[in-house]
Computed example of a mutant assay.
Amino acid sequence: MILRRTLTTAAVLVTSAVSAVAVSGSAYANTGPGYTEFCTQPFAKAGGACFYSDNDSFKLTDNYADGLRSVLRWELGDRAKKGTPGYIIRRGECHNTLGANKTIVCDYDFPEGKLNGTSRYLVHFKVESQDGPSGRPVYYVGGPIGYVSGR
């Protein structure tokens, strides 16, 4: 009888501890409702970038001390115009000139809206490293497609 109570108590304590870790833990810092992160490969020679749908911003990191700048190139697509020449409605660039292991944030204001229950607007982005403001790309890493507003 004492052994049964001890085993039952131990099982309840282990279950409670596992539940507490599962509920309180998060894969990313500063996450919350509406927060979605879309990222390239983090340690690519070109650099690494993430798009944050909760505030329409990119973080761009230069990964290597190679004398090259990391450049984020993005395009904003409107899914309501998919398959037409007007699908891409905006383009932009963000240049990290701070050097190796430095990160910058580039903020934008993208339109929001829904189409068929999900975000109407998509962000396509990639990171390239280049020599100077208009140099030819040396390294390249493609990014995922991110949903504006994360939905």
Rank of each mutant, 00 (worst) to 15 (best):
M1S: 13
M1Y: 14
L3F: 12
T6S: 11
L7Q: 10
S16R: 09
V18H: 11
V21S: 12
V21D: 09
S24T: 10
A27Y: 14
A29P: 11
G32N: 08
G32S: 08
G32R: 07
G32T: 11
T36I: 04
E37H: 10
F38K: 03
C39D: 05
Q41Y: 01
P42Q: 03
P42I: 01
F43I: 09
A44Y: 03
A44V: 06
A46V: 04
G47I: 03
C50L: 01
F51N: 08
Y52F: 15
Y52Q: 00
S53Q: 02
N55I: 00
N55K: 13
N55W: 06
D56T: 05
S57G: 07
S57T: 10
F58A: 00
L60D: 07
T61M: 13
D62Y: 05
D62Q: 00
A65G: 08
G67F: 01
V71Q: 01
V71G: 01
L72D: 05
R73M: 09
L76P: 09
L76F: 05
L76M: 06
L76Y: 06
G77Q: 11
R79V: 11
R79D: 15
K81P: 10
K82N: 15
G83C: 10
G83E: 09
T84V: 11
T84F: 02
G86K: 12
G86F: 13
I88D: 06
I88R: 09
I88Y: 07
I89T: 03
R90C: 07
R90G: 07
G92N: 05
C94A: 12
N96V: 09
N96F: 03
N96L: 08
T97W: 13
L98Y: 14
G99P: 06
G99S: 04
G99N: 07
A100E: 12
A100G: 11
N101T: 13
I104H: 02
V105F: 08
C106V: 02
D107P: 02
D107M: 12
Y108R: 09
D109T: 12
F110L: 08
F110D: 02
P111Y: 09
P111F: 06
G113S: 01
K114V: 06
L115A: 07
N116M: 07
T118K: 14
T118L: 11
S119I: 04
S119Q: 04
S119F: 03
S119P: 05
R120A: 02
R120N: 02
Y121R: 00
V123I: 14
K126T: 09
K126R: 13
V127S: 03
V127H: 01
E128A: 06
E128Y: 07
D131P: 10
S134A: 14
R136G: 13
P137A: 12
P137E: 10
P137V: 11
Y140E: 14
V141E: 10
V141R: 04
V141G: 04
G143T: 03
G143W: 03
G146K: 02
G146T: 04
V148G: 00
S149F: 11
S149D: 15
S149R: 13
S149L: 08
R151S: 10
R151C: 12
